[in-house]
């Protein structure tokens, strides 16, 4: 039942996008997200959308997988779209009380919806094609300059990767504990809020106990391998740029130039 939850889920694959350097992918996604805010005409989405489709095709991730990521923000999406649709001042088409449907409203509604959708599916492509470990490696590298100011970059990156690694484990454990307690007649679904909260105790206590036990074991295991933080630590698989990564940066620049040229010349 709980298995279906997908947080930052990785889609196993061997595609070009999967193999790209995670630093390129993180930078790429950042640039892409920012680029979505840099134009005022719908035509920009044609360029941004095509770029997304290109990357998606290369990554061989099924489209419905990416779409699934939209489900949690569906409410936000509809809400924003409706707000823009009915409260934008301009040339009125239809009017009902305070609701005011305008030409500009329709345009803005489509504009905002497209932007939100591309924001979400664009960034979900990063987590779908990059393992959490690669992701934190890239973060650590990209945030490296802040080390000079005494920021614990390595420690934070390590904590992040540990936290990410434990999400599926704890989810599975929650599932098992729920089943074990349901076998003893526990009920997690009915009753009012207070009742439900109290019914969570048989689930939460074993979960916390097991989480602390796991954390303890992991700490011992790290200690046994003489882990003592970031200083002087080398990597087994250091990040290294290949020629495909440089080409990737090239493609990114081409995309940006194309986007600027198109949105400056065509005003739709």
């Amino acid at each position: 039942m709980i298995r279906d939850i997908t947080i930052g889920q990785y889609y196993q694959g061997e595609s070009l996008i999967h193999k790209l350097d995670p630093r390129l992918k993180v930078v790429g996604v950042l640039v892409y997200l920012i680029s979505l805010f840099c134009f005022r005409y719908v035509i920009g989405f044609l360029v941004a959308g095509l770029f997304f489709v290109l990357v998606l095709k290369l990554s061989k991730v099924p489209f419905r997988y990416v779409i699934k990521g939209l489900k949690p923000i569906l409410f936000l999406l509809v809400f924003t779209a409706a707000l823009n649709l009915l409260w934008t001042p301009g040339e009125t088409i239809w009017r009902f009380g305070i609701l005011n449907l305008t030409k500009e409203g329709i345009y803005k509604c489509i504009f905002m919806a497209l932007r939100l959708i591309l924001l979400i599916i664009g960034s979900s492509l990063l987590t779908l094609t990059t393992t959490p470990n690669q992701l934190t490696d890239a973060m650590e590298y990209l945030l490296g300059p802040f080390k000079r100011f005494g920021a614990p970059v390595h420690e934070v990156a390590m904590m992040m990767s540990i936290a990410l690694r434990f999400i599926p484990i704890l989810l599975e454990e929650t599932d098992k504990i729920m089943k074990a307690q349901m076998s003893r007649g526990a009920d997690f679904e009915s009753g009012n809020l207070m009742h439900r909260l109290r019914n969570m105790i048989p689930l939460l206590v074993p979960l916390f106990v097991s989480a602390t036990r796991r954390a303890n074991e992991l700490a011992y295991a790290m200690d046994a391998r003489c882990y003592n933080g970031g200083a002087g630590r080398t990597k087994m698989k250091p990040l290294k740029y290949h020629s495909r990564d440089y080409k990737g940066y090239g493609v990114l620049v081409v995309y940006l130039v194309l986007l600027i040229v198109v949105t400056r010349t065509v005003a739709i």
Partner: peptide, 15 residues
Amino acid sequence: RKAGLVFQYPEHQLF
């Protein structure tokens, strides 16, 4: 109740 199931790890149910 009739078909009582005991899971592998007692840690999953003791609270």
